[in-house]
Design a protein around this nucleic acid. Structure first.
Length: 800
RNA sequence: GCAGGUGUGGCGGAAUUGGCAGACGCACUAGACUUAGGAUCUAGCGGAGAAAUCCAUGGGGGUUCAAGUCCCUUCACCUGCACCA
């Protein structure tokens, strides 16, 4: 019937040669910026999952272009990172070569699928012309005091021999290889992301992200309000400060707990009589992995510190101090006040070690469990008698502040971003260390600091980047004093390059700035940003942080980078499981294109189900979509001349235009395809259709199946390709039928239907309903109690 | 434990937001055309029933003339966070 390969090639060539999708930064049209996460160009090629999200946004981009928007729909490559490096280690090849090959493959596949990217704006994060600006921006962070080097206990992957950020070591497991992570003390570059906690939270209000993405970010930032309380140490200068969200229970404190890493343990080691026991516990805590330590089912452990006590500022009582690993070093102050009567964890600890429990809120039974509800305050000095938690908290905080015992405090779970990786394949951090001057930033003129090739890509055993072995490169002179200095050998994390790439697309060839302010202002916020759910608390948070920083520096015009963020569901294997080589359920898009054509694959992936939900692959479904396209092709035989819609199709056509346009904008692609199927089914019932009828069908289908529809458009004698033609418009008045079907029910049960004119009055509808045979039968011998008439919809008669 | 989400035929999924549940597609069944069918066409397709009709949107309860949709309750599964003080 037709050769889809020829059709694809023909139109792909046409778009390439005509530069159909090249976008200008100067236009009278309204701008629209559609962005889909750029892929990591791995060796395995494009995944059918990529095809889903790319087609979805491609359809949106194609439609909006035809509707007169100036659409920016770019593509590039996030090419630094582990897979290329792993491959390089194994095969002893320069990762850049491998990356180049992979990009070629990906790009070929994308073109083969007919995505309308503006290829003139393509770049890779590994291009020196690009990472020059990543380094440049790092220096801006440094200048602003937001990049600092700190010896930190970091998440360490013993397999990859590298440090990981908290986001990359979620659940105590290495994101890359799945190994259990350890804690390791190491000097690391850090970015002060925690300074932006509140802003990142507030900024969400300016966005239109999906709720689950917002919630994930809100949880991750983890804001909690409470107070810092200072407990004086007995016979010592220092105070033991704790963060608590329940300062109202301060009178119920019966012990304190420090994390095993608390600095006072070292500072006061000479005073602590059982220091050996304490050290032993510290060792024990360290030996545990994150998973073991946070295992909620395990029993509480801990050691009482002998020789160090503190004083409750409210009542002057002497309080014992313990150490336990249920208190985390990196949250709050690394120490807590324990109120066993009203906190489950403290209760468990107190029960195990026989510590006294003082209730300060009435309710519950402290013999059985900690009472966490509200109630009347008791044993609580100034708070006695209060029953409202909020009032109690406010009152005690102002009391603490007045006396200098503490202050109101908001805490965030979000930590600073660990920005160093002990890896080769990443952006070099443009810093040098001079014995005399300390850490010195590279002057901006010296950027890019090119990543040199190395003899071996393996990280060293002591956890240094392979760059440390490139002596020519490492040894340099200090930009400040000219003396001998050494370059930083750690590289940036994979997330660096993707933290600003959407800005570069606006002005990709600029060698004076990362993007001109004019270009940034013209394109503004990304209107529609699509990506995976797995990035909700990583890439998306890093990117927002980075962008907000640039905004503070006056380098970008908007506070937030993305207006709307959507996430696509995964394409699962035919067995409903995640596609993986080991499960043997991977579907290669190339094979599908070869067998059914790009348009069929695109159509199927749009039709597969709710865009946001996971969906299992089913090749029969793909066949069905191929059949649909074949049907559309065959309908060409029914076309007769005519510049107007057939009279009996007019309403349906207008309805379909409305539905398809709306569905593509709101990402309800499955129902858009379904509407087009309904329309073509209708066409098929007819002897003939007009050219106008046919053209509207192929035009509406064009964003989803661009090749075959362009071809058909040409075959019916049209000179201008669809992509250069205005998208069909609908007439609202013609989306409603002049007659409607009215349902008639008795006691809410459907008994009959009849046709009525649109907007017929209630009395008429009721009369007509009552005349129906089946209705009369049901009314016989019954008493009518109530009659409800909803115009254009339903008549319901209630009888007894 | 906390937060978010989902639950509708054999399957993927619709349902204009309270108004005819199951659109559209797949699979399946029967038939037509055919040398052939992974093509095409016709008919059927939630369950029970000859039919009238009854039952049916995870379970139970409620509001309403009317509930997949709203409220309460319960169960199951998925995702994220999790000894965060």
């Amino acid at each position: 019937m037709y050769n889809f390969n020829e059709i694809q090639e023909k139109w792909q060539k046409y778009w390439d040669e005509k530069e159909t999708f090249k976008t200008s930064n100067e236009s009278d049209k309204e701008k629209y910026y559609i962005l889909v996460e750029f892929p990591y160009p791995s060796g395995s090629g494009l995944h059918v999952g990529h095809v889903r999200s790319y087609t979805a946004l491609d359809a949106m981009a194609r439609m909006m272009r035809m509707q007169g928007y100036n659409v920016l729909f770019p593509m590039g490559w996030d090419a630094f990172g582990s897979p290329a490096e792993q491959y390089a280690i194994k095969n002893k090849v320069y990762p850049a070569n491998m990356v180049k090959d992979c990009i070629q493959t990906f790009k070929g596949q994308m073109k083969g699928l007919g995505f309308s990217f503006d290829w003139s704006r393509e770049f890779a994060t590994t291009d020196p012309e690009y990472y020059k600006w990543t380094q440049w921006q790092f220096l801006k962070f440094y200048e602003a005091g937001l990049a600092y080097k700190d010896e930190k206990e970091i998440n360490w992957c013993p397999n990859c021999l590298t440090g990981l950020s908290n986001e990359d070591a979620e659940g105590g497991v290495c994101e890359r290889c799945g190994a259990k992570t350890e804690k390791k003390l190491k000097e690391q570059w850090m970015l002060r992301m925690s300074d932006y906690s509140e802003r990142l939270l507030e900024g969400l209000k300016e966005t239109d992200f999906m709720d689950k993405i917002k919630t994930a970010q809100i949880n991750w930032i983890g804001k909690s309000e409470g107070a810092i309380v200072h407990f004086e140490l007995e016979d010592a200068e220092d105070k033991l400060s704790v963060f608590t969200t329940r300062p109202d229970t301060l009178y119920g404190v019966t012990f304190m707990v420090m994390s095993p890493e608390h600095k006072y343990l070292e500072k006061y080691k000479d005073r602590i009589k059982n220091i050996d026991e304490i050290n032993k516990y510290q060792e024990y805590a360290k030996s545990k992995t994150e998973i073991e330590r946070t295992d909620l089912t395990k029993e509480k452990t801990g050691v009482k510190i002998d020789g160090l006590r503190c004083i409750n500022p409210l009542n002057g009582e002497s309080i014992e101090i313990w150490i336990s690993d249920y208190v985390l070093a990196n949250y709050g102050t690394g120490a807590i006040m324990a109120v066993p009567a009203h906190d489950e964890r403290d209760y468990e600890f107190a029960k195990k070690f026989g510590i006294k429990i003082i209730p300060v809120i009435e309710g519950g039974d402290i013999e059985k469990e900690a009472y966490i509800g509200e109630g009347k305050m008791i044993n609580s000095g100034v708070l006695n008698g209060l029953t409202d938690k909020k009032t109690s908290i406010e009152k005690i905080i102002s009391y603490l502040e007045e006396k200098g015992f503490g202050e109101k405090k908001t805490n965030y779970r979000l930590q600073d971003w660990i920005f160093s990786r002990q890896r080769f394949w990443g952006e070099p951090i443009p810093m040098v260390y001079c014995e005399k001057c300390g850490w010195v930033p590279l002057p901006y003129e010296e950027l890019p600091l090119i990543l040199p090739d190395v003899p071996s890509y393996e990280p060293t055993e002591n956890g240094e980047s392979p760059l440390a072995n490139v002596h020519d490169w490492v040894n340099t002179t200090c930009p400040k004093c000219g003396e001998h200095a050494r370059r930083e050998t750690d590289t940036m994390p994979n997330w660096a390059g993707s933290s600003w790439y959407w800005l570069r697309y606006t002005d990709p060839n600029n060698d004076k700035e990362f993007a001109s302010m004019n270009a940034l202002k013209y394109w503004g916020m990304v209107d529609y940003y699509n990506g995976g759910m797995e990035h909700a608390t990583r890439h998306l948070l890093y990117a927002r942080f980075w962008h907000e920083f640039l905004y503070d520096q006056g380098l970008v015009p908007t506070k937030e980078p993305f207006k709307k963020r959507v996430a696509h569901g995964m394409i699962l294997g035919e067995n409903g499981e995640k596609m993986s080589k080991s499960k043997g359920n991977v579907v290669n898009p190339d094979d599908m294109v070869k067998e059914y054509g790009s348009d069929a694959l695109r159509t199927y992936e749009m039709f597969i189900g709710d865009y946001e939900k996971d969906a299992a692959w089913n090749e029969n479904g793909l066949k069905g979509c191929k059949r649909f396209l074949d049907k559309v092709y065959r309908l060409k035989e029914k076309v007769v001349d005519g510049n107007n819609y057939s009279e009996d199709l007019e309403i349906l056509i207008n309805q379909t235009i409305k539905k398809v346009e709306n569905d593509i904008k709101t990402m309800n692609y499955n129902t858009a395809v379904s509407a087009l199927m309904i329309l073509s089914n209708k066409y098929e019932e007819k002897e003939n259709i007009t050219k106008a009828d046919y053209k509207v069908l192929i035009h509406l289908l064009n964003p989803i199946a661009p090749h075959i529809t362009e071809e058909l458009n040409e075959l019916i004698g049209e000179k201008t390709p669809l992509c250069e033609t205005e998208f069909p418009k609908y007439d609202e008045n013609k989306t409603v039928e002049s007659t409607v079907k009215i349902a008639v029910s008795i006691n809410g049960k459907l008994r009959a239907t009849f046709d009525a004119n649109l907007d017929e009055d209630k009395g008429m509808l009721l009369n007509k309903a009552k005349e129906l045979e089946n209705i009369q039968r049901h009314l016989e011998g019954k008493e009518i109690i109530k009659e409800i008439v909803v115009p254009n919809k339903i008549v319901n008669i209630v009888v007894k």
